[in-house]
Computed example of a mutant assay.
Amino acid sequence: MSTDAKLPPAIFLMGPTACGKTDLAVHLTRHLPCEIVSVDSALVYRGMDIGTAKPDAATLKRAPHHLIDLIEPTQNYSAEQFRQDALRLMAEITGRGRIPLLVGGTMLYFKALKEGLDALPEADPELRAEIEARAAELGWPALHAELARLDPKTAARLKPTDAQRIQRALEVCYLSGEPMSALFARQQAEPPPYRLIEIALIPSDRAALHARINQRFAAMIEAGLIDELRGLRERFDLNPGLPSMRCVGYRQAWQFLEGEIDAAGLYATGAAATRQLAKRQLTWLRGWQGAVEFDCLRPDLAEAVLGYLEMRLAE
């Protein structure tokens, strides 16, 4: 028996937004001794339910999820924090004789868990304030252009308007004297002490996934996304630069409340941003090593994935 085979199993269930991960995960918990650990950077926020497609109370009662509703929308949650929390929970779940089922679409979190993260320089408030002041004067696209000179690999995967990540990448360059991409490239793989069974849900028809995304975003608006954000703005000291308010859907809802877009623009830009998110997630998944792919559109998806997992768990 190999060393890997002696390790306790853990399941990664990865896929783009609107591919059906939650429904599939709940189905799996009915047939396997699994506990769900959310791998989603938006579900950590309390009160952000509609725009994150957070499982409803009935679903959570049937299949409790770890790592949701952790923090307020004014707070931050990092990939390293996720890794620490997830490893602790996985140990507890395994200790109960059950199987950790990690489900989500935040691929950086999956990467952090599987490989670890390089020790990047800690945030420097003074430097961040300086970067923000320059952005206010020149605009984030100009700072993105500067990042492209200092760290072309990181700049290539960021939008010129992605303020949070541009700021962090520039901060790392200034503090370390090296590009963030170079620091990541040097990191040593630190696999968790589990036999990972990795599944990627990939749509055979991108247009069909886009139709799901469009329908779901329309349903979020109908369910009260605007009222949800209005209530959050009344309860908390929020601003559009917070990570929580940069989540897809909330960013566009904020623009609507500020009168920058109308109802038609809210739907159009929100659905388009969600489609772009799915595209980025699929780009991550295409380069992911070790995952078995399943078509998320196949009618027998639940049965097929369950059968595969039962086979792998019996090994």
Rank of each mutant, 00 (worst) to 15 (best):
E115F: 06
E115R: 06
E115D: 01
E115W: 06
E115Q: 09
G116H: 01
G116Q: 04
D118H: 05
A119K: 05
A119N: 01
A119G: 05
A119E: 06
A119D: 05
L120A: 09
P121I: 08
P121T: 00
P121A: 04
P121N: 03
P121H: 02
E122Y: 02
E122N: 05
E122I: 07
E122S: 09
E122M: 09
D124V: 03
D124W: 01
P125A: 11
P125D: 01
P125R: 04
E126I: 02
E126P: 07
L127G: 15
L127Q: 12
L127C: 14
L127M: 15
L127N: 11
L127T: 07
R128A: 01
A129I: 10
A129N: 13
E130I: 08
E130T: 07
E130R: 15
E130M: 08
I131G: 08
I131K: 14
E132M: 06
E132Q: 10
A133I: 12
A133D: 13
A133T: 12
A133G: 14
R134V: 09
R134S: 10
R134Y: 11
A135L: 11
A135E: 02
A136L: 14
A136D: 13
A136C: 15
A136S: 11
A136G: 12
A136I: 12
E137K: 11
E137R: 15
E137Y: 05
G139T: 03
G139R: 00
W140G: 06
W140K: 01
P141Q: 02
P141H: 02
A142Y: 09
H144N: 11
H144W: 14
H144S: 01
A145E: 11
A145F: 05
L147I: 07
L147G: 04
L147D: 02
R149P: 04
R149A: 04
R149M: 04
L150M: 15
L150E: 08
D151C: 11
D151M: 04
P152D: 02
K153T: 15
K153N: 08
T154Y: 08
T154H: 10
A155F: 01
A156D: 15
A156N: 14
R157L: 12
L158I: 04
L158V: 00
K159D: 00
K159N: 06
K159T: 06
K159F: 07
K159Q: 10
P160R: 03
P160W: 07
T161Q: 04
D162W: 00
D162G: 02
D162K: 10
A163E: 09
Q164E: 12
Q164P: 03
Q164F: 13
R165I: 05
I166S: 00
Q167K: 14
Q167H: 09
Q167T: 02
Q167L: 09
R168C: 02
A169E: 00
A169H: 00
A169T: 04
L170E: 09
L170Y: 10
L170D: 10
E171F: 07
E171T: 02
E171H: 12
V172C: 08
V172A: 05
C173L: 12
C173W: 14
C173Y: 13
